[in-house]
Design a protein around this nucleic acid. Structure first.
Lengths: 104, 104
DNA sequence: CCAATACATAAGCATACACTTATGTGATTC
DNA sequence: GAATCACATAAGTGTATGCTTATGTATTGG
């Protein structure tokens, strides 16, 4: 199932870090390793899992592979979260900011 | 870390099912087992993990323990998701519904 | 071509995780 | 107050997961 892939993908802190890095701009696998203590195969495996979860997508560019955030995965999480909107505390500031940003 | 606890808690399909069940109304541990093929210790362990992640909270009531959705955990996910709002596709219907519901 | 680069895949290993059975703990009921 | 009920905890076990080293596969540059 897709939902399961997403949550399993995000359950690993290294993958969330990779995802966060990609959110600041698309990058190839080597650039993602810069400043991070992680082996090349480990990075490759994490990226495969993120891609499979539709959180990240890839695009080949010569011998490089460019990775970027895939909105599909985020939309799935938003959908999941929406099911429980009745429980969201209305006063959460971050949430208000989110609304302001999106309601344009 | 709290964020890690939440995503790890949600990575298990059984726990997401338990959470979904609780979202439809607070329940004690025995009621949560109704119609679900899960042992009593397994349920207890899952609930402990969900509580630790602030996704669920408990309240003792005699010899029963009542479990309910904890908004704190959901707010944390909303916060996490908000960091990537730039990537949310604006046209997702569920998202629009969500916005409409919340912008009141 | 052939060496080097960028990345993927395979296989093995240590740890984490979700389950099991067994037992403990606190509250209720007879 | 002894038995029972609702739940928690302990200990053990099989499997999943994330890493490692080694090798494979495109692509590019000299």
């Amino acid at each position: 199932m897709m939902e399961n892939d997403i949550f399993k993908a995000l359950a690993d802190p290294t993958r969330r870090m990779i995802f966060e890095k990609l959110a600041s701009g698309s990058m190839n696998a080597s650039s993602l390793r810069d400043g991070v203590e992680i082996s090349q195969p480990a990075m490759s495996q994490h990226l495969a899992i993120l891609c499979n979860a539709k959180l990240v997508r890839q695009e080949r560019s010569g011998r490089f592979v460019n990775y970027e955030v895939d909105p599909d995965g985020l939309a799935m999480i938003a959908n999941w979260l929406a099911k429980y909107r009745a429980y969201w505390p209305a006063r959460i500031d971050a949430l208000k900011d989110l609304l302001k940003d999106m309601d344009q």
